[in-house]
Simulated scan of single mutants.
Amino acid sequence: MNEQTARTPLFCDVTLAGRIERAEARFIAACGEAAARRRGDRRGFRMPIGGGVAGYAEPDSPLNKVAGLGFAGPPDPAALDAVEQAYAARGAPVQAEVASLADPAVLQLLAERGYRLVSVENVLGHALGGGAAGPVTPPGVEVRPSDDAELDTWLDVVVEASLHPDAQGVPWQEEFPREVLENAERDAAGLVRRYLARLDGVPAGGGSMHLTDGVAQLTGAGTAPGFRRRGIQSALLAARLADAATAGCDIAVVTVQPGSASQQNAQRRGFDLLYVRAVLVLEPGR
């Protein structure tokens, strides 16, 4: 029996899920603050709600969401009223992401208020420590940290990858214009460790990682369409896992679409399914 088949899958309890969801809420709040600095106005907001955060960056942004609910009890209805009114004032839906290990009363409350389930996401985890995972070095592929001097190169490749998602598995429920994706990635760029992958010297893929409270959030990775099926995603994954372990994190997490190539690649590298996030939406005017 080899090491991969002999290992014990990572188990996620409510405590660990709460830690991961709080990390996600902090990241969304920090990205929202960065967006406000870029825009130089007060159009956006960050509002604490039920142990999590409601964030709004700008119209149609992927950063517009409620994260981290359900690990400090259900949100106060009056606080939820204020959140819903803030989104409605901007003509935006409320998108609440609720972990399957959160307090079940949260889902009941949202359903009673007219939220509808639109999609689900899988949260995968990898225990770190005890030695970093080995590198992955496909022929011609080089992965290294990306500095500010090549920020535009990194942005170009990760946005291009996002605009052409892999067709395997359940598709993302949302689609975003290029400009909106560029803004969101630029806002997050100062909060994450960025990685650029080159194939035979040509920029081919990129990824990022946010570290907080011992949690390494793999906050995105993509390969430009013309360079796929060359091992770039696996190389980006391995590089970030090694750096996360060196930084002292005890767990790495990634959010993927069910049945996607990203989930398949992550599970090949030792990630386990921890829990599911339900994505619920309340449209303006409901």
Rank of each mutant, 00 (worst) to 15 (best):
G68I: 09
E84H: 08
N2Y: 10
D41E: 00
G129S: 05
A105K: 13
A245Q: 15
V254I: 15
L69C: 09
G285I: 07
L236C: 00
F71N: 03
G140V: 07
Y87P: 02
G125P: 04
L181Y: 11
R90M: 01
V136R: 13
G44W: 03
Q217V: 13
E97T: 09
R46G: 02
E185I: 02
F227W: 01
R19L: 09
G51T: 11
G190P: 01
V141E: 11
G130R: 09
G206Q: 03
E142W: 02
Y56L: 08
D103H: 12
P258G: 11
Q4G: 06
G73I: 14
D156M: 01
V256P: 10
L63S: 05
L117M: 13
R37A: 05
Q108H: 12
E185Q: 15
L107M: 14
V118A: 11
S162M: 15
V192M: 05
R277Q: 14
L274R: 03
A88N: 10
V98M: 11
A252I: 10
Q263P: 08
L211D: 08
A221G: 12
E182M: 02
G91V: 06
R113P: 08
L117P: 07
R38G: 05
G220T: 12
E24V: 04
G259F: 07
V53P: 02
Y87V: 01
V157Q: 06
D187T: 00
V53A: 14
A167G: 01
L80E: 02
A252R: 05
A167K: 02
A247Q: 07
E182R: 08
R43D: 11
L110A: 04
Q263C: 10
M1Y: 04
D213F: 05
N2C: 11
L101I: 12
A34M: 07
R38P: 00
A6E: 14
